[in-house]
Amino acid sequence: MRLSPSSLTRCGLVFAACAAAAGCGSVDAVSHRITDAITPYRVEVVQGNFVSREQVDQLKPGMTRQQVRELLGTPLVTDIFHAQRWDYVFTLRRQGVPDQARRLTLYFQGDALQRFDGDTMPSETEFIAAINKRRGGKIPQLEATEEQLERAGSKPSTEARAQPAEPPPAPAASYPPLEPTTR
């Protein structure tokens, strides 16, 4: 069976279309790999009140609203339709880490805390360790030792500490009047 030139052209076009479609799939796969490797910077978003396990442990039924506010801070959500309920919500969005969201709801009866419920909160050290895992992990030492202070020369010697400091200079004897003397 012989094919006519127009049939050959059609077969060639169909073959070229199939090859192009197959090629697009491999190009698409390569482009997905490239875009997965190169991602734009995503800003860290921290929103709400972080409430630690230590703070939740200090909550006791019967506490006043003011005591709760001093312990946990001002709630993120206070609803006019639910005046007897405070919601503490905390969200953290960081690149390369699943979004974190924690919620604590407090219920009041009048001015007294009745009950509370919500997610299990991490301790302060667990939370800091989770944040530092992403940033390199090592927690810096925040306090200098006695030896480091002396080496830096910022710590006064024991002789200088024993001597009393000189009194500050006396204030100026007269100042100009704040208002005009005559009216």
Rank of each mutant, 00 (worst) to 15 (best):
W86E: 04
K155N: 07
Q141G: 07
G137P: 03
R93S: 10
L76C: 13
K138Y: 08
D99H: 07
R102F: 02
S123E: 04
E147I: 08
R115F: 06
K155C: 10
G118C: 00
Q163V: 05
L149T: 09
Y88G: 00
P168Q: 09
Q67T: 12
F108A: 02
E124N: 08
M121S: 00
L113H: 03
R85S: 10
R115P: 01
T145A: 12
D79G: 02
L113P: 00
R69P: 05
L149H: 13
A152W: 15
E166P: 13
R103E: 04
R102I: 01
I80D: 10
D117T: 06
K133D: 12
K138F: 04
P140A: 07
F90W: 10
G136M: 03
A165I: 10
R151M: 13
E124A: 05
A83T: 11
I139E: 05
D117P: 00
L71D: 06
A101Y: 06
A144I: 12
L106W: 00
D111P: 02
D79N: 09
F108C: 02
Q66K: 14
K133Q: 10
F108E: 00
E143K: 14
R94E: 11
R94S: 05
R103Q: 05
V97P: 03
S154R: 13
K138G: 06
P122V: 06
I128T: 06
D87K: 08
Q67A: 11
E146M: 14
Q84E: 11
A112L: 02
E143Q: 14
V97H: 07
P168T: 04
G110E: 01
E159V: 13
R151E: 15
F108L: 01
E166D: 15
D79W: 11
E126R: 01
Q84G: 09
A165Y: 10
Q109V: 09
K155G: 04
G110V: 01
L104M: 04
R161A: 09
I139K: 03
I131D: 06
F81K: 08
R65E: 07
P156S: 11
A83E: 14
H82S: 09
P98E: 08
R102G: 02
H82Q: 12
L71E: 02
D111K: 02
R134M: 10
A160R: 13
T91C: 09
P122M: 06
E124R: 03
K138H: 09
P164G: 09
A129N: 07
E146H: 14
A130K: 05
A165L: 15
L113S: 01
